[in-house]
Simulated scan of single mutants.
Amino acid sequence: MAQREAWVQAEGGYAHIQGTKPQTLSYGLNDSPAGLAAWIVEKYRTWSDCNGDVESRFSKDVLLTTVMIYWVTQTINSSTRLYYETQRHPWDLKQGERVETPTGVAAFPAEISRPPREWAERSFNLQRWTEMPSGGHFAALEEPQRLVEDIRAFFRPLRG
Rank of each mutant, 00 (worst) to 15 (best):
M1P: 12
Q3L: 13
R4Y: 14
E5V: 15
A6N: 08
Q9L: 13
E11V: 06
H16E: 08
H16I: 12
T20L: 05
K21T: 06
T24L: 11
L25D: 00
S26D: 02
S26F: 06
Y27G: 10
L29F: 04
W39A: 05
W39K: 00
V41T: 14
Y44P: 03
Y44K: 02
R45M: 12
T46H: 06
W47S: 04
C50S: 09
N51M: 06
D53N: 14
F58Q: 00
S59G: 14
D61L: 12
V62D: 00
Y70K: 01
V72Q: 04
S78G: 07
Y84E: 05
E85C: 12
H89M: 07
L93Y: 10
R98G: 11
R98E: 00
G104C: 08
V105Q: 01
V105K: 01
V105A: 08
P109G: 11
P109S: 11
S113E: 05
R117Q: 15
E118C: 04
E121N: 06
F124A: 03
N125C: 12
L126N: 05
E131L: 10
P133S: 13
F138Q: 00
A139T: 01
L141M: 11
E143H: 04
Q145H: 13
R146L: 15
L147H: 02
L147S: 03
F155Y: 14
R156Q: 15
L158K: 00
R159M: 15
